[in-house]
């Protein structure tokens, strides 16, 4: 993600801006990063002890419960373990089988990519758009915020039920509203359409999430910036894209990371609808189907998990290179 180069701080002295604030407020701008040189190296033994114990505890949990099992899954993906019997080395056969002989796999991979594109290109910008509208100091803003945010806090069961309620071919609200009761559209059963309507449901949740993050970011933008732009004769759109948006960079990164996480981890909506089958396959549901359920094809499921892991790591690398480049400046 590259942002247009603009003058990020037309008002110079950062401290002047914080006048009147009741607490030393954090700022959105990068200059702090430039002060990296001053490291604090004078630790007492007690300091080292505290750091060691607390960071150590967090590390222990992270490595023991997250990274350890991840590495173990990588190992399991080369076996044909069924969860009960002995471990047997199976080479790369699981990978061969899933790429060549497991029809749902490629559909799932395609759906995950679609999901990422849909969230990234449609839902996320829509969330930003709503945030911009709600940032205009309007009345009833809290009501609108709540309305957009509600879907985020709903659990699997609610979302599954809602999908059925709205999209059901014979009894759903959508076909009733658009008057297709004679030759109803099979929103959830037709494998050519269902992924799209389900992504709409996913976007329904994602928009609220992104909206709230951006709203928070926008609240933090210094109004003086906008005023300066208006004085310079910029219209609303220009002000937003050339002045406001660039200052949202920290939020942008978080939203980007969250969008990617949501797309790769996408699971509950399709699982609630039909366990991720018949056109709604996602890598996460295939893993669940193979590993979690009664099937217990641990080796094979782990291989799918490793593929998902590899894709995640790809995005993690992209994200980190961004962070490093930023810090390197």
């Amino acid at each position: 993600m590259t942002l247009p180069a603009v003058n990020r701080d037309p008002h110079g002295d950062p401290d002047r801006r914080r006048e009147g604030s009741t607490q030393p407020a954090p700022t959105a701008r990068p200059p702090v990063a430039r002060r990296r040189g001053r490291r604090m190296r004078r630790f007492t033994r007690r300091d080292v002890g505290v750091l060691g114990v607390v960071v150590g505890a967090a590390l222990l949990l992270d490595i023991g419960l997250i990274w350890g099992p991840t590495v173990a899954s990588l190992g399991l993906s080369f076996t044909d373990w069924n969860g009960i019997g002995d471990l047997r080395w199976h080479g790369t056969e699981n990978y061969h089988d899933l790429a060549n002989e497991y029809p749902p796999f490629w559909r799932a991979a395609r759906n995950n990519v679609l999901w990422l594109a849909f969230l990234g290109l449609i839902a996320t910008p829509l969330g930003l758009f709503f945030a911009v509208l709600l940032d205009k100091q309007i009345r009833f803003s809290r009501f609108y915020q709540s309305a957009f945010y509600f879907p985020v806090v709903l659990s699997l069961a609610v979302v599954g039920f809602i999908a059925q309620l709205v999209y059901s071919r014979d009894y759903g609200a959508l076909n009733a509203i658009i008057g297709r009761t004679d030759s109803p559209t099979d929103w959830l059963g037709n494998p050519d359409i269902n992924i799209w309507v389900v992504m709409v449901a996913a976007a329904w949740r994602h928009v609220g999430y992104v909206m709230i993050l951006y709203l928070a970011g926008l609240k933090a933008v210094d109004p003086a910036l906008k005023e300066a732009a208006v004085i310079d004769g910029a219209n609303e759109a220009q002000t937003f894209f050339q002045v406001v948006f660039p200052t949202l960079r920290p939020v942008n990164i978080i939203v980007l990371v969250i969008t990617v996480i949501e797309a790769l981890r996408a699971f509950d909506i399709v699982y609630a609808i039909n366990k991720g089958r018949n056109g709604l396959e996602l890598l996460s549901t295939l893993i669940t189907e193979n590993i979690v359920g009664e099937a217990s094809r641990i080796g094979f499921g782990s291989a799918i998990a490793v593929i998902l892991l590899a894709i995640s790591v790809g995005f993690i690398a992209v994200y980190l290179s961004q962070v490093f480049r930023e810090d390197g400046r």
Binding site: S168, R169, D170, D186, G189, P191, N194, N274, N278
Partner: peptide, 15 residues
């Protein structure tokens, strides 16, 4: 019945 993959067994029973 057409569209079986989008119908739950309960909806079919209702019909």
């Amino acid at each position: 019945q057409k569209g079986a993959n989008g119908r739950t067994w309960q909806e079919a029973a209702q019909s």
